[in-house]
Structures are given as structure tokens and as C-alpha cells.
């Protein structure tokens, strides 16, 4: 219960960066922190107390495995997060070349 709430606080830190900061790189960092929080929440949700990792072993019988389904879903989410981060950084660099700043309040010439 407290673990879930700490994870929610981590999400809020990222959301604060997205809402409040003016630097585009800081906003990208906020998005990255939000992705961390969501992946961690999925894994926390599938954790079984005193469980084992979902790998079979040739020597022994393993019965109490943790939930493997959120892990599989979070794995795709991690890879997609890298792709979106690369795309966002590319757009930010293009904006820097065009306007000479990362400050979003100075970018006021979005008129084509």
C-alpha cells in the first residue's frame, strides 16, 4: 500500500516537471521520470511475496513464480520509451537550431 503510494509520488514529480518547467529538456526529463514510475508500478503490481523469478530451472521444481504478464508488457513499454525519447530530443534540437533557445516562452513564432 505505501509502496504503491510512493510510486504515485514519483509519477507526480515527473508531472510537476512537465507542467511547471520552461526548459524543453526539463520537460523531456519529466516524461522519462513518468515512464519510470509507470513501469515500476506495473512490476510492483505483479510481485508475489517471497516469489521467484519466472525462469524454469533444470534441477529443481519452482512453484511460486511472480506474475510474468506485467513484466512482458513493461518490456515493450521500455523499448518504446527509448524511441519516443529519441524522437523528442530530435524535435528539441531542431527547435534549438531554429530559435536559439530551449525556453518555451521565447518560442513565439509558430506561425509557419
Amino acid at each position: 500500500m505505501s509502496t504503491y503510494f510512493l510510486c504515485l509520488i514519483l509519477f507526480c514529480v515527473g508531472l510537476y516537471a512537465i507542467l511547471r518547467k520552461r526548459n524543453i529538456i526539463k520537460m523531456i526529463i519529466g516524461i522519462v521520470i513518468c515512464e519510470y514510475a509507470i513501469n515500476l508500478f506495473l512490476i510492483l503490481f505483479g510481485y508475489k511475496m517471497n516469489g521467484r523469478s519466472p525462469l524454469y530451472s533444470p534441477d529443481q521444481q519452482i512453484l511460486d513464480m511472480v506474475d510474468p504478464l506485467p513484466q512482458a508488457m513493461a518490456m515493450t513499454a521500455i523499448v518504446i520509451s527509448l524511441a519516443t525519447t529519441a524522437l523528442l530530443v530530435g524535435i528539441a534540437i531542431r527547435i534549438y537550431e531554429k530559435y536559439g533557445t530551449f525556453d518555451i516562452t521565447k518560442i513565439n513564432k509558430l506561425k509557419g
Binding site: 513501469n39 512490476i43 510492483l44 510481485y47 516469489g51 521467484r52 523469478s53 519466472p54 525462469l55 511472480v66 513484466q71 513493461a74 518490456m75 521500455i78 523499448v79 520509451s81 527509448l82
Partner: peptide, 14 residues
């Protein structure tokens, strides 16, 4: 610590 070694490897590299 949450018993997800696949994710640990992937997250490290990413």
C-alpha cells in the same frame, strides 16, 4: 529486487 531479471537487463541497456 522485484525478481524481473529480463527487465533489469533491458532497462540497463536502454
Amino acid at each position: 529486487a522485484l525478481k524481473a531479471p529480463d527487465l533489469a537487463i533491458t532497462q540497463l541497456v536502454v
